[in-house]
């Protein structure tokens, strides 16, 4: 018996279907990430202003000028420092919370819901809330400390009625890092929870049968198995935070002095508020080689850990 040859149907072609499914994501990346990114590179090599976006090539002039700017170098260092310190805390808290939230306990779903809120809340709205919480004069935290004798005359922490959370060099930096950790930890936790849930139960059962206790199971089985996912969570969190300007824009606008000024904010202040679009673009692009190197290193680390 001869089989009838059916006409080729495009959706039978796996390669075509794969491309079709990828198309929306590719289009999104090309239009909303790729194009602005290329435009920023072009701006960085030109003398564009907010009033004139004609691309006149000026070579490396903007990058050299930015590098010679003392404020930029401080801003760059602050951005790296804030990012690295935050990631340490995010990693610690996300691991602890992921372990807690993968256990069975009453009210787990509600606790998870509450916990995800910082990530789900629009960042500008959340920051306005924190701006109020950390207000230099009317902070509710200060009020509680005042009522409990930690602040005020003969106070344990200070004789002042306020700690000036966003006004002193040390506390302003601690406040910004704290708020970033508060904001970013839920995402890292959710990613790690997914990783923990994907560990085959037979491995954990075997460990239990072999008499492995909680810490040993955690350190020698769970954490090594979720290491690739942990690296991805870290990468997401680092890149998001490195490019963020909303937190400091709302809370401190970079102050006091330049203590909390980060790259995203400085780029905005120079490029949009100051009108020097070319130099604003150059400032923002300084982060790119560093982020690219970090991403390659971390993805390779994740890949190696997965293979092992």
């Amino acid at each position: 018996m001869t089989r009838l040859a059916l006409p080729a149907f495009p959706l039978d072609n796996r390669r075509f279907v794969g491309l079709l499914f990828l198309a929306p994501a590719l289009l999104y990346i090309l239009l909303l990430v790729g194009f602005p990114f290329l435009l920023a590179i072009a701006f960085g090599f030109s003398d564009v202003t907010v009033g004139n976006t004609d691309l006149n090539f000026v070579g490396l002039q903007n990058y050299l000028a930015v590098w010679e700017n003392d404020i930029f170098r401080q801003v760059f260092e602050t951005t790296i420092r804030f990012t690295l310190i935050s990631q340490i805390f995010i990693l610690i808290f996300a691991n602890i919370l992921a372990i807690i939230f993968t256990q069975d306990f009453t009210g787990k779903w509600f606790a998870r819901f509450i916990f995800i809120l910082p990530w789900a809340t629009p960042v500008s709205l959340a920051m306005i809330g924190w701006l109020w919480m950390l207000d230099t004069k009317y902070s509710p935290i200060d009020y509680l400390l005042l009522q409990t004798g930690f602040l005020g005359p003969n106070g344990i922490l200070s004789n002042n009625r306020n700690l000036f959370w966003l006004a002193t060099p040390d506390l302003s930096q601690i406040s910004v890092i704290f708020v970033q950790v508060w904001r970013m930890t839920p995402l890292a936790t959710v990613i790690l929870m997914a990783g923990l849930s994907s560990i085959p139960t037979d491995i954990l059962d075997q460990a239990e049968v072999d008499g492995s206790r909680f810490m040993r199971t955690l350190l020698q089985i769970k954490l090594p198995l979720i290491l690739p996912i942990m690296v991805i969570a870290l990468l997401f969190s680092m890149i998001t935070m490195f490019g963020d300007m909303t937190v400091v824009y709302v809370l401190t606008r970079g102050g006091p002095v330049d203590y909390t000024r980060v790259l995203g904010l400085y780029s905005f202040q120079v490029g949009i508020e100051g009108g020097n679009l070319a130099q604003g673009a150059a400032i923002s692009l300084f982060a790119f080689p560093l982020l690219l190197a970090m991403a390659i290193f971390m993805l390779r680390t994740a890949s190696r850990a997965e293979v092992q």
Partner: peptide, 21 residues
């Protein structure tokens, strides 16, 4: 003055005057 002036927003001096502080 106090250290609060290092961390002010544009509304802070308004708020302080209104509060009599």
């Amino acid at each position: 003055m106090t250290d609060e002036v290092f961390g002010w927003t544009a509304a802070s001096n308004n708020q302080g005057l209104i509060a009599g502080e």
